[in-house]
């Protein structure tokens, strides 16, 4: 079976989608990444990664309702697919194997 084909950003976003569940859209995803990595995030780069994941079938998107708080624009919610979960699982297995028993990591 072929190994995972996810980049670091792809994997991070998929994990965030799993954490956020139904509340995963641009703002919440970016905020979760910022809180975890303690680095500022460009929303456009989050969307670029999400679009790539949707194209590859690892996530799906759907539009919510427009609100005045968003200038009359709808939220775009994202959800991880079964294929995405399998890719994350495969990535976890690979990383756990590679990280195991490394003296530098204690």
């Amino acid at each position: 079976m072929a190994g995972p084909s996810l980049g670091t950003n792809d994997l991070m976003i998929l994990l965030v989608l799993m954490r956020l569940g139904d509340d995963a859209y641009g703002v919440t995803i970016a905020r979760e990444i910022e809180e975890t990595t303690r680095r500022p995030v460009a929303l456009a780069s989050v969307y670029a990664t999400l679009d790539r994941l949707v194209e590859r079938g690892f996530a799906v998107s759907e539009l919510g309702e427009p609100t005045a708080e968003r200038g009359g624009r709808a939220k775009k919610f994202f959800r991880i697919t079964g294929k995405g979960v399998r890719e994350v699982r495969a990535a976890k297995q690979s990383f756990v194997k590679l990280w195991k028993d490394l003296p530098q990591l204690g």
Binding site: Y25, G26, V27, L43, A44, Y47, R70, R73, A74, K75
Partner: peptide, 10 residues
């Protein structure tokens, strides 16, 4: 639109 909506919200 989705991006601009997010920026508006923030």
């Amino acid at each position: 639109d989705a991006l601009l909506g997010d920026l508006h919200e923030e």
